[in-house]
């Protein structure tokens, strides 16, 4: 096992280095798309925590991205620093997530999905109708990009590094979380709620916690989304974003740490690659997603997982065969 770890770490370093170095000579479009990928990955990681680790379907992750985006847009265009907006967004999304989840989970497992569905449309209506706060359908434009330790990040490349850096920090935090006792409790919940309960895990509290933390990650993604596009209006945070994020998690492989990275790549980059087909690109994208899910309902990483476990069984049966042969040939 330890021997297999080194190539993995080496691969990880290569990927990170590539994400830092390769985009240096990208054009503005490439950097924008890549930044979008980083932001969406953060949001999808949050949903993966809720769905993949705690087994709860949330249809409001897009709304939490919206809350984060509006927090950033409103606060930074009033001269407050982005980091303050980040704090507000995290707290706000966490608390709202908790309040939403509490009654829903009190009743029944899958009712969280229904409540979040309603919430995401309600959030859209509030974004659109409360002009005094959100400037309504006109949206908030000219959102400034932050200065990090005195460095302006107005240009595409520095801001890409802000997004990538945030993704790095969030990844580390999530990595730590799912290896902590909390994370193990989340998984216990998903795998067998009754057993988890009998083991003395307060299932409702942990489920709620997973949902609230996942929502807060949506808020973080939102605080990056606002300065990335530099314009926020209600339309992008409609239910469709929540559904898109759900799709990212499932397509990448829900419950796998790297699932959201791949899922967001499919959702953000695949349509871009298909654009050469003009009017057909979204259709082809839909067909590709359906095809992938039929082939592997557990997502891309599910394929990999299946492949690895098949190889392991093969290796194991080979070993067994060898052992058997040895036994048989033994006098």
């Amino acid at each position: 096992m330890t021997a297999a770890k080194y190539p993995k770490i080496g691969f990880g370093i290569v990927v990170i280095a590539a994400l830092i170095i390769v985009p240096m000579n990208f054009n503005r479009y490439g950097l924008f798309i890549l930044s979008q990928w980083a932001v969406m990955t953060i949001a999808a990681m949050g949903l993966n925590l809720t769905l993949g680790y705690a087994g709860q379907v949330s249809l409001a992750q897009g709304a939490f991205v919206g809350i984060g985006a509006y927090a950033a847009a409103i606060m930074t265009s009033n001269g407050l620093p982005l980091i303050a907006a980040l704090g507000v967004a995290i707290v706000l999304c966490f608390v709202i997530g908790w309040i939403l989840g509490y009654p829903a989970l009190r009743v029944q497992h899958h009712y969280l999905a229904f409540v979040t569905l309603a919430f995401s449309t309600l959030a859209f209506l509030v974004f659109r109708n409360e002009d005094w706060l959100t400037k309504g359908i006109y949206g908030i434009s000219n959102i400034p990009r932050p200065e990090i330790f005195g460095y302006p990040t107005r240009r595409p490349l520095p801001f890409y590094y802000v997004c990538l850096g945030s993704l790095g920090i969030v990844s580390l935090a999530v990595w730590w979380l799912i290896r902590s006792p909390w994370g193990r409790a989340f998984i216990a919940l998903r795998e067998n709620p009754v057993r988890a309960l009998s083991l003395g895990i307060d299932t409702r509290r942990y489920t709620l916690m997973a949902f609230a933390i996942g929502s807060a990650l949506g808020g973080i993604a939102g605080t990056l989304y606002a300065p990335l596009t530099q314009y926020v209006d209600p339309v992008p945070f409609h239910l469709s974003l929540s559904l898109d994020l759900l799709m990212m998690v499932i397509v990448g492989g829900s419950g796998f740490f790297f699932g959201p990275f791949l899922g967001a790549m499919i959702a953000v980059l695949l349509p871009e690659w298909l654009r050469f087909t003009q009017g057909y690109y979204l259709m082809l994208y839909a067909i590709a997603v359906i095809g992938l899910l039929i082939y592997s309902p557990t997502g891309i990483l599910g394929i990999l997982d299946r492949f690895i476990s098949e190889r392991r069984t093969k290796a194991a049966s080979a070993l067994r065969a060898v052992a058997k042969a040895k036994l048989e040939t033994a006098p």
Partner: peptide
């Protein structure tokens, strides 16, 4: 769609129908 996916649980199938919705919509438009 349903038969090949059903045994893998509710969610992948639900997601596949979301993609199907995009596909049908775009096809009608195109």
């Amino acid at each position: 769609l349903v038969d090949p996916m059903l045994r893998h649980g509710v969610l992948p199938l639900a997601i596949a129908t979301m993609a199907l919705a995009i596909g049908i919509k775009e096809a009608a438009k195109q």
